[in-house]
Design a protein around this nucleic acid. Sequence first.
DNA 1: AGACCTACTGTAAGCGCTTGCAAGGGCCAT
DNA 2: ATGGCCCTTGCAAGCGCTTACAGTAGGTCT
Lengths: 333, 333
Amino acid sequence: MTLAEVARKAGVSSATVSRALNAASTVKNSTRARVMRAAQDLNYHPNLHARSLARGSSRTLGIILSNMENPFFFDIFKVIESSARARGYESVVANTGYRSEQLVSSIRLMIGGRVAGIAAIVSEMDTDLIRTIIESRIPCVFYDVGTPSRNITNVRVDYRKGIERTVEYLHSLGHESIAFIGHHSTLGPINERRTAFLDAVSQFAPRAQTRIVEGADGLEGGREAARELLASGFRPTGIVCVNDFMAVGVLRELRAQGIKVPEEISVTGFDNIRLSEFCSPSLTTVHIPRDIIGRTIFESLVPDPKKTRQKGREIRIDTELVLRESTGPAPRT
Amino acid sequence: MTLAEVARKAGVSSATVSRALNAASTVKNSTRARVMRAAQDLNYHPNLHARSLARGSSRTLGIILSNMENPFFFDIFKVIESSARARGYESVVANTGYRSEQLVSSIRLMIGGRVAGIAAIVSEMDTDLIRTIIESRIPCVFYDVGTPSRNITNVRVDYRKGIERTVEYLHSLGHESIAFIGHHSTLGPINERRTAFLDAVSQFAPRAQTRIVEGADGLEGGREAARELLASGFRPTGIVCVNDFMAVGVLRELRAQGIKVPEEISVTGFDNIRLSEFCSPSLTTVHIPRDIIGRTIFESLVPDPKKTRQKGREIRIDTELVLRESTGPAPRT
DNA sequence: AGACCTACTGTAAGCGCTTGCAAGGGCCAT
DNA sequence: ATGGCCCTTGCAAGCGCTTACAGTAGGTCT
């Protein structure tokens, strides 16, 4: 089913059909109706590949995420996607699962699809890839990795401060033995969170004992990390988790082992995903405003024609400690 | 950056470049190397639109989901996606949020993109749309809606039996006042779940009082529905939820109101998502094997060349009741 | 009445890639 | 030598759509 067939059926040229369908140009009403009718009758669906090829430009955004299963990423995705739709853009999304080959192939796919912009909310970015993107001239936003450049904007969250607040808070509750549960991702922000943790401890709780354990990003990963931590013999009174998603897994393991939270161990998360209010006990965590991040990303990718475009800049996002039920005074020893 | 430029730089024709890049056809090794080199140097990325247009066929699968935020859908997506990748297929995914306009535009997009197959895991399907898909000749799988046809396969889960088991089980625990929390989706399986609930009650617990409440699919929706239910004055001893995701929200509200689960109220879910083991108390639920569903869907869409293709059939998936902590004997009145 | 403008519609040249067909060159067998 | 064959490579025709440009018809203005 092609334009030409619709044209034949409607008794016009294919150019007219194209114009009628795109509503853009001048077509007599009666003609348009005839064309629409024919298209409908023939169950015609324009070939989008041919269209983008002919148009040469696309209104599609590429969104790449490390782990869509983690609501933190998903929330950002949702905001970008709906902002995009509201402005008439499609979005295509890729989930890398923290695998760098996946990232490479997703980027390839997006560049090959000549998307109008790329949002890379991933922590597994490598420098070669960044070069590729820069050279592609496609507007791109990185979340938490990379450096600004001609077509690249960076959005960064102030993790360090968030972790500092958390550690400071735990210390103020008397915790002197604190573990950090991170996830397997040696690059970027995660690593930053771990270092930030260590720095924060030495700054705010210099006498505290620490231990670091890692697991896969997810409920199960958090649970396993907690199991490993407790099996190691180290007995913390506070556990700082790299994110809420893992923290929920941690809570589960503690419950399984009959450890009361927060009476025996306090647990904190990071991100403030919805689930952190819904788990039991609800999580003390650090809020990251995904809505702001999502909108910011979209706006840097698709500049509002009314405003002047700001390119190649870095945007910082602030966080905020949210106190809930999972933290309390350290138990007396 | 086009094929022609790479060709010029490598001193060959564009046909040769194409062949070299697609590895398929016969190209002398030295030539291939030269071409690869040129492509790399120029940071060349083939225009995928042009490619699909020229090829006329695509190795892309379209996956449409009602609510990717609900891990049930996401799990299915993951399985389809990874099966697809393993067989060299890309996938594009669309999230409809139960909105039917969204479904329509997603389907349009996929047909326009000439995908190799469509997986529609949605409950908001309408008959017009189904006709469109049938006429498009694109292989398609519906989950839980529609009827088999030339290019359409149906995958169905035996909800009815699952709900029956649930109600029967609650009844055996002495529950005589049972509420059902569904979500706003008057079509398809959800409605089936509700009717199944009522039928099951009249069959297995004919003397039981019932009440039905609905909310949006999600943690918050579950919580609100529970709030509404409790505010209504009806005081159930058992709450059957349409799915686990909402059930977690229900648990949260009960906890907020100081109602003990399962001592005062038993709660059941449906789907057996990961989270149902991680919440507190863990959920009694009905397991739906998402991995089997995902693989089945993929295989119906992309038939294994070694096996004979089965078209237009209906596949039934069985469920299983999983007992956990959220259910117990009805309290004595 | 003729010039001119407006409103539509058609013609045809691509967009960047794939691929059937044919051509060129080297090699072997006769 | 010469014909035949295989291996490589180039030529050129599309794939289905958009769009600049040109053409036609009807109406308006002077």
